[in-house]
Structures are given as structure tokens and as C-alpha cells.
Design a protein around this nucleic acid. Structure first.
Length: 604
DNA sequence: CGATGATATAGCGATGGTCA
DNA sequence: TGACCATCGCTATATCATCG
């Protein structure tokens, strides 16, 4: 790596580090019980987005479970949970895999970028913790317990520079001394040659989580000593890692499984495969997932009573009318006249004939006087009273067009392990002109296949990512990240970017034109790297925020399509896919509230 | 028993009219 | 002119029924 680029790196180091940490405005309040997976941020600066839905693009059947009993991961936690070994030995074995990767160019380059060697002779556990920022906590070698990017250690991580070891030392060139130089020289081959770790103390299966738990050292989060997992035997061996780790929540990449595409572990676990079971995260173990799906809603303004009364009057009036219509024998086509209900040309009613209509339903009385919102917090699952169908994909707000197989993008991004981190970062950091930067109301989702998960840091700084955000990446722009095994023996990493307030909006929100919101086909994407780039918008054409969901007008064409598909008897699940930017509930409501009643006069 | 369909209802946001 | 209100369109959510 040339010195010029090193200088550029140095300039960007403060930003570099915070890139990969999710910046919660406030620390979440957590209880001992809820610390694990369901930690809810106090506030979320952006509407809840579900980039996980992007994985719907993939045939789930393609996502081959890598661990017996697993299906696929749709979030960091899921991925980790799948890959988490059930036993310390399994964790130990798995955690060594990355180091045994032959010809690991990325790791070599990462050393070139500069690492901080944290000497911790007390290290006795083995393992390696990888973070999205490329942090590698290598505990395989007691003399090299952690290697952390410069920025992380130097600026925010709170590395004890006064350590008698080389902790805090910054090596920005290949002339660095000590273990860094040694690592640089031998690269991954050298790491592969490292001796097997002594198992004086087995690494915890949660070792890859612990450094992401700032609360461990924060008395505000209670006494962790009572947690069974937080025995000293677990914490102390990681002390060096903890000290060197950045004290904020951060992405934790599943580590206890070999990266796809890497040589599989040859060692045989003493535990039969059947016993490998994803462990539950004990209380107190916190790894804030970036892909939090739960979000506090913005406080709703109380409606004026008069307005409410007016609304109710309207609705009651409407409902009276509707109910009269439904109670009418003509409300719905009977068995005898179903064929004529829709101009006599559809088979929908024929398909529905078996269903008695109108159906007299006995509804459970609602809790009068208790608003639904009060009875049911909005940040609970949005899936309504049951676990499927309506709104389970809410808020994805997909305005999507796939942009795969773009050679140009492949060249531009260069985040592949083959290309190496240097190749990635060596490219211009200017925004990719082919990718429309996100605006203040958008987020962009970059889905990338990484051969080496350790290069997620490079991904975030890639020209593609910078292009999406319109500027070099910064903290506020990372909203969400997911990691998922991909059948092509790679990791599918989906990162959601938002626009920072400082980002100059280069494009005015043109409306809800899907095409306008998707990046050009030649922007990014390749068969081997970028899977897709999406732009999402949380604004509709009128500028109203609808929690990430399109709230636009139903165009006549949409109505016609919906009517036609209903007439054809298409299942709702099929129809939903035809309206990717609307929630299932919205589609159904459109039909039952607007379109279906609209059909009725035709038959009378 | 879970998935799906059907329906009811709460609530948000925009728009336009009325009136002080 | 601005506050207030009515109206409307739309979406989210709850609940029950049905089906495989």
C-alpha cells in the first residue's frame, strides 16, 4: 500500500472507526432478562426498516443450512445463533477456522493498514472475534491477543496506550515491528502455521459476543455477576479484548463457523453433530443486533376530541351503510348469482362459491374505551393478532429493482476477498456517480456477497457504499446490517445506509416512482459481490411519513390489477408480491374496503 | 395447529370549508 | 389569517373463520 493512501486512511481514521458501530442516540434500557436479543433501542432515528426482506429475493431453499437443524439467518443474531456451537470445544474449533485460511490476502492487507497489537500474556483462551469493522480479536496466539484497526484503538476504543506491551502502537506501514511485522510477513499463511492453542481454558461460546457488551463494565446495567455466563473465567481471559474493544455496541459477526468458501474444519468435534445446538443467550449477554426489528414509534399527537368524534361519526355512518349493505342479500353474490357479480367474466366468485356469504360472524366485544394503541404497544410485533399474513412484511417499503450482474459495479466495489482490501480501499473514495446517493428521506440497502466476512469493513468504505451515502461513510449512515450464509459459499451481507444530515441531497425526492428510487442497473452488483442495491424512501408523494411504507395513492392501474387478480382467484400471498411497496393489510383493505364494494353496483 | 382469508376498526395525514 | 372542524383516503392491527 502506498504512502498516499495510508495518509488518506489516517485522515479518515476517526470516521473509520465509528463506521461500524451502530450509534444509538441513547443507551437502551435493558433488564437482566431482556438483555439478550430483544433489546429495544430507546429511540430509533429512522423508521424501522426490514432489509431482511431483501432476502426474500433469494429462494430460501437456496439458503442451505450450514449447521444441522438450522435454516437460515436473517439477522446477525440469527446467523450467530445458527453458527454458535453448543460446546466450548466446538467454539474453540470453529473459531480457529479463519486463521487457517490459506492465501488470505485480506488479512495480509489488513495488517498493512495498520493494527494495534495488544499484548496480553494472560490470554489463554483461543478464538477469534470478528467485527464488522474488521476487528479481529485473535486469541489463538497468546502473544497476539488482539489486532485492531488503528482508528479503533487509537481514538475510541480506549486502548491503554500505557500498557507495557505494544498496545496502542500504530502501525501504518509495513515497516512496523513486532508481531505486526511478523504477521505482515507471514500473512495468513503465517497464521495458519500458528500452533494450536492451548486449551487451558476453553473459550466460551459467547466469546464473540462479550466484547460487544459495554454494559459489562457499566454498573448502570446491573450486576452481571449473577449471570451464570459471566463468570470470571469467561471475562478475564477476554480482558484485553474488552479493554481494546470500542465501548459502544457494534456489529458482531458470527464467527464460530468457518467462512463459506474456506477450507472446512478438519478437526473432528468430540461432540456428535446432533448435540450441536444453538445456545440461548444467557441473561446479561448482550449483542445489540443492528437488525433490530423493534422500534419505538414516534409519539403520536393526541387527536382532538372533536376530531375524534367527527371521525367516529363518519365511520359509524359509513359502517352503518356498510353493514346495511352486507346484511343485504345482495351484499355479496350468492351461489346462484356469483357469476354475474363481476361482470360475469371471472371465476373468482366461482372459486369463492363454497364460502358462505355474507358470513355472520360473532365478534368478540372489543374493549370499549380502551384505545388499541394503549392496549397494544405499537412496538410489539406488527403481525397483528396472528403470526402470518397481514403486515408481517410491514415497513419494508421495498422499491426495488435488482441490479445484479454488473461488471462495472463489480469492478467498482472490489470488496471481494480476491481483490483484497487494498484493492477496495485503493479505489477512489469519491461517490460512485452511478449510484444516486440517498436523500434525507431515503435509506439504501447494499447487499453484497463476501467471500470473507472480515471484509465487511472494507465493504462499508467501498466506493459503492460511499456512493450510496454520497460521501465517505460515517456513523449516522449505518442503520442496519445483516449477515447471512449464502449458498454460493459466501456471506451475504446487507447493509442499510441512511443519509446523514450533512449529506448534500443531490436529488430531490421525485416521488414514488420505483424506477426513480432504484439505482441504475450498471451501478453496482456482480455475480460475485454486490447482490443488489436498493433505495428505500420513507416519504410518499405527498411527503407524509408512513413508517417506511408507501402511502401513496392507489393508481387506477393498481386497482385494475388488483381487481383482475382477485377475479382470477390469485391468492393473497401472490398478490402481495405484486405490490411490494404496500403492506399486505393495505392491499387487503384496498380490496375489501374500496374495490370490492365498488363492484357491487355492477351486479344490481 | 399453523397458514390464510375475511372483516372490523383505530388511527394518521392531507385537504378544504367555516368562522372569529 | 389562523384555528377549528369535517371529510376523505389510506394503512395498521385485531379478531374470527376456514382450510389443509
Amino acid at each position: 500500500m502506498n504512502s498516499t493512501f495510508q495518509a488518506k486512511l489516517a485522515d479518515r481514521q476517526p470516521d473509520n472507526f465509528r463506521h461500524y458501530t451502530y450509534p444509538p442516540p441513547l443507551k437502551p434500557k435493558r433488564t437482566q432478562v431482556s438483555r439478550g436479543r430483544e433489546a429495544i433501542p430507546e429511540k430509533c432515528p429512522l423508521p424501522d426498516l426490514v432489509p431482511n426482506s431483501l432476502f426474500d429475493e433469494l429462494d430460501d431453499a437456496q439458503i442451505q443450512p450450514m449447521i444441522p437443524g438450522s435454516t437460515h439467518a436473517t439477522s446477525l443474531n440469527d446467523a450467530r445463533e445458527i453458527s454458535s456451537p453448543s460446546t466450548p470445544d466446538a467454539a474453540l474449533l470453529n473459531l480457529n477456522l479463519i486463521a487457517e485460511k490459506p492465501g488470505c490476502e485480506a488479512m495480509t492487507e489488513k495488517s498493512v493498514l495498520g493494527e494495534v497489537e495488544i499484548e496480553d500474556s494472560q490470554q489463554s483462551t483461543s478464538g477469534r472475534t470478528l467485527y464488522s469493522d474488521g476487528v479481529v480479536l485473535d486469541q489463538r496466539n497468546p502473544s497476539r491477543s488482539a489486532s485492531i484497526p488503528v482508528a479503533a484503538s487509537n481514538l475510541d476504543a480506549g486502548v491503554d496506550n500505557s500498557s507495557p506491551s505494544s498496545a496502542g502502537d500504530v502501525h501504518n506501514d509495513n515497516t512496523s515491528t513486532g508481531s505486526t511485522q511478523a504477521d505482515d510477513d507471514r500473512g495468513c499463511h503465517g497464521r495458519a502455521e500458528q500452533q494450536e492453542p492451548e486449551r487451558q481454558e476453553l473459550g466460551s461460546p459467547y466469546d464473540d459476543i462479550i466484547p460487544s457488551v459495554p454494559e459489562i463494565r457499566d454498573p448502570k446495567f446491573g450486576n452481571t455477576a449473577g449471570n451464570t455466563w459471566s463468570e470470571k473465567s469467561h471475562l478475564e481471559p477476554r480482558q484485553g479484548a474488552l479493554q481494546s474493544a470500542e465501548p459502544g455496541p457494534r456489529v458482531v459477526i458470527p464467527t464460530s463457523r468457518a467462512p463459506l468458501g474456506q477450507p472446512s474444519l478438519k478437526a473432528v468435534s468430540p461432540y456428535p453433530a446432533a448435540t450441536i445446538k444453538a445456545p440461548r443467550f444467557p441473561a446479561g449477554v448482550t449483542s445489540r443486533p443492528l437488525s433490530h426489528k423493534i422500534v419505538h414509534p414516534p409519539p403520536r399527537a393526541k387527536r382532538r376530541a372533536s376530531t375524534m368524534a367527527g371521525q367516529l361519526n363518519i365511520r359509524h355512518r359509513r359502517l352503518r351503510t356498510t353493514n346495511r349493505a352486507r346484511a343485504s342479500p345482495d351484499a355479496w353474490p350468492s351461489d346462484s348469482d356469483s357469476d354475474s357479480s363481476y361482470d360475469g367474466e371471472d371465476n373468482l366468485d366461482a372459486a369463492k362459491d363454497a364460502r358462505p356469504r355474507p358470513r355472520q360472524r360473532q365478534r368478540a366485544p372489543r374493549l370499549s374505551g380502551i384505545s388499541k394503541s394503549a392496549a397494544t404497544p405499537k412496538w410489539k410485533s406488527r403481525s397483528g393478532g396472528r403470526t402470518s399474513s397481514v403486515s408481517t412484511r410491514s415497513q419494508s417499503g421495498v422499491l426495488f429493482r435488482g441490479v445484479e450482474d454488473s461488471p462495472r459495479a463489480n469492478t467498482a466495489l472490489g470488496v471481494l476477498c480476491d481483490a483484497g482490501v487494498a484493492a477496495t480501499l485503493g479505489l477512489s473514495m469519491l461517490p460512485n456517480p452511478n449510484i444516486p446517493p440517498v436523500t434525507s428521506t431515503e435509506v439504501a440497502v447494499l447487499t453484497v456477497l463476501l467471500a470473507d466476512i472480515t471484509e465487511i469493513g472494507a465493504l462499508l468504505e467501498s466506493p459503492a457504499a460511499c456512493g450510496l451515502t454520497g460521501a465517505p461513510f460515517s456513523t449516522a449512515r449505518l442503520v442496519h446490517a445483516t449477515v447471512k450464509p449464502h449458498p454460493s459459499q459466501q456471506w451475504q451481507v446487507t447493509v442499510t445506509f441512511s443519509s446523514a444530515p450533512s449529506v448534500v441531497q443531490t436529488a430531490k425526492n421525485p416521488g414514488l416512482d420505483t424506477e426513480a428510487y432504484t439505482s441504475s442497473a450498471d451501478s453496482v452488483g456482480s455475480s460475485s459481490s454486490i447482490h443488489s442495491v436498493h433505495h428505500y424512501s420513507s416519504e410518499d408523494e405527498s411527503g407524509s411519513r408512513t413508517r417506511g411504507r408507501k402511502r401513496g395513492r392507489w393508481e387506477e392501474e393498481d386497482d385494475e390489477n388488483l381487481i383482475a387478480w382477485r377475479r382470477l382467484g390469485k391468492p393473497w400471498s401472490w398478490i402481495y408480491k405484486k405490490f411490494p411497496d404496500r403492506s399486505e393489510g393495505a392491499i387487503k383493505s384496498r380490496w375489501y374496503v374500496v374495490l370490492a364494494p365498488r363492484q357491487k353496483p355492477k351486479r344490481s
